[in-house]
Structure formats: C-alpha cells, structure tokens
C-alpha cells in the first residue's frame, strides 16, 4: 500500500514537471540553432509581429530565429510585401548573414 502511494506521488510530481517544462519551452518558441551565412529553405514556425521576428524550421530540422533589420527585403512573387504578409506554415527562402552567432536576414522570399 505504502509502495503504491509512493509510486503515485512520484507519477504526480513527474507529470507536474513535464507540464511545467513543456509550457516553459513552448512559451517562447523553444531553443534555436545557429547556421552559417547562406541561403536556406524552410517553413515559418512562428511569427512575432511586435518584434518583427520570425522562426523558420529549415529542411534539416534546425530552427533559426530571425529579427528583421533595416536592410532585410521581404518579397512574394517578385514584389516587395509588408511584414504582415508572413504567416505560420508558409514556405520561405531566407538569405542570412552570420554576425558572431547572430543571424541577420538579408532577404526573405515567400514561396507560395
């Protein structure tokens, strides 16, 4: 009986921790990766309009975080579009420049 209670307590505490960590990590887009300068294809995982920031999951499964800078160009069908044109799930091609471990987006092209 005591052993059963102990197992129940351990299960409850484990579940509580799992939920807390899941909330914590998902609340801010999760951990991100750093890649070399270059052009990459991927899917938008998250858009944060108030920070003009996007998270892109690349074809190899890595996730990069891109804060738009003044030089960043955003295009769709060859035309410049506003940041509001970006949405979760869109296929994009991004050209990034690695500065230290920071990735500055030079261009973002919406494919669809």
């Amino acid at each position: 009986m005591q052993m059963t209670n102990l197992k129940l307590n351990a299960t409850v505490i484990t579940v509580v921790f799992a939920v807390i960590f899941a909330f914590g990590i998902s609340s801010c887009g999760g951990n991100t990766d750093v890649v070399d300068s270059g052009t990459y294809s991927g899917t938008i995982k998250k858009v944060e309009p108030e920070k003009t920031e996007i998270y892109v999951t690349l074809e190899d499964g890595k996730t990069i975080e891109l804060y738009f800078i003044e030089e960043t160009t955003l295009t769709k069908n060859g035309e410049k579009v506003d940041f509001s044109a970006l949405a979760k799930g869109q296929e994009v091609e991004v050209e990034v420049k690695k500065v230290g471990k920071r990735l500055d987006p030079i261009s973002v092209t919406i494919k669809e």
Partner: peptide, 12 residues
Amino acid sequence: SRQICDPTVLKA
C-alpha cells in the same frame, strides 16, 4: 536582440 553578438544566450 539586433545588437548583441550571441542571441542564443538571450534565447536560453
């Protein structure tokens, strides 16, 4: 975030 050299620390 646009000024620091290692935003991975900021993310962590």
